[in-house]
């Protein structure tokens, strides 16, 4: 990761104050039975912004990110994605989902389909793209994530890192405006983490709006515009990586950083 620091401007130096809002959360709360997973979470994410969500496990990071494309339903507050409010209206959900790409911790590739078909399925049937066009695009995306030669294999024949890169290509094939990453490297062997993070870095530099739940501090320092630290379902502290890591204000943040750094 060192070679990038010399050649490219850190993403956090960009000025995004004039960019339009992409994701707006106001007082989002969610309960699982009696357990409150999210407690009045409010945040605004700008277009092209890269936000890394940190926090101890069970702090509600994943729940929050999954609420944003309505894999989980929030019970109070409002979430607006690109101007569309998430309600029970099926049409809104489908519209939001086709604009928001999601990458999962466990990859969740479709094991019965070849890699190429994993990537083309949604463009063909959801976006109604002609098959030839979708395949051309898929080939280009697989090239972009660095595994063009694996198109005819099944997911089970690939390594974890390769599978996660296919999952990124699958999400990108829908041409989303926002990408959500839910602990994308947590299920990977250490030597495969870098290849996935490299792809995510490239994506961030290309101007994609990204929300990343991760434990990769190096990635957060290098790529994030903003860090959001969560604990007990609440946002405890937000800030640019420089300030967040060197000079945190809250005690809980300090405790967390002392444990992971």
């Amino acid at each position: 990761m060192n070679e990038n620091e010399n050649t490219e401007t850190p993403a956090s130096d960009r000025d995004l104050s004039n960019a339009p809002d992409m994701i707006v959360c106001e007082g989002v709360s969610k309960w699982y039975g009696d357990f409150q997973a999210l407690d009045e979470v409010s945040a605004t994410i700008k277009e092209q912004e890269v936000v890394v969500v940190l926090g101890p496990s069970g702090s509600g990071k994943s729940t929050w990110i999954r609420c944003i494309n309505r894999l989980e339903h929030h019970q109070e507050g409002r979430i607006e994605v690109d101007g569309i409010e998430l309600t029970n209206d099926l049409r809104n959900i489908e519209k939001v989902r086709s604009e928001v790409g999601m990458v999962f911790q466990q990859f969740n590739l479709f094991p019965h389909l070849k890699v190429l078909d994993n990537v083309t399925l949604a463009p063909i049937w959801v976006r109604k793209k002609p098959k030839a066009e979708a395949e051309e695009q898929a080939a280009a995306l697989l090239e972009r994530v660095g595994i063009p030669e694996q198109a005819d294999k099944y997911p089970g024949q690939l390594s974890g890192g390769q599978q996660q890169r296919v999952a990124i290509a699958r999400a990108l094939a829908m041409e989303p405006r926002i990408m959500l990453f839910d602990e994308p490297t947590s299920a990977l062997d250490p030597e495969m983490i870098k290849e996935v993070l490299d792809v995510m870095k490239e994506l961030a530099l290309s101007g994609m709006t990204m929300m990343v739940v991760t434990h990769e501090v190096g990635f957060a320092k290098e790529v994030a515009d903003r860090i959001i630290f969560m604990d007990d379902g609440q946002i405890v502290e937000t800030g640019t990586p420089e300030i967040f890591f060197s000079n945190p204000t809250e005690d809980r943040t300090k405790l967390f950083l002392s444990q992971i750094l």
């Binding site: 489908e94 086709s98 790409g101 999400a171």
Partner: peptide, 20 residues
């Protein structure tokens, strides 16, 4: 996870059922 992956790429319930 399979259901969620299909939903996350915007498939309708019937598409999810039939293809995934």
């Amino acid at each position: 996870g399979q259901h969620e992956a299909a939903e996350a790429v915007g498939m309708t319930t019937s598409q999810k059922t039939f293809f995934i």
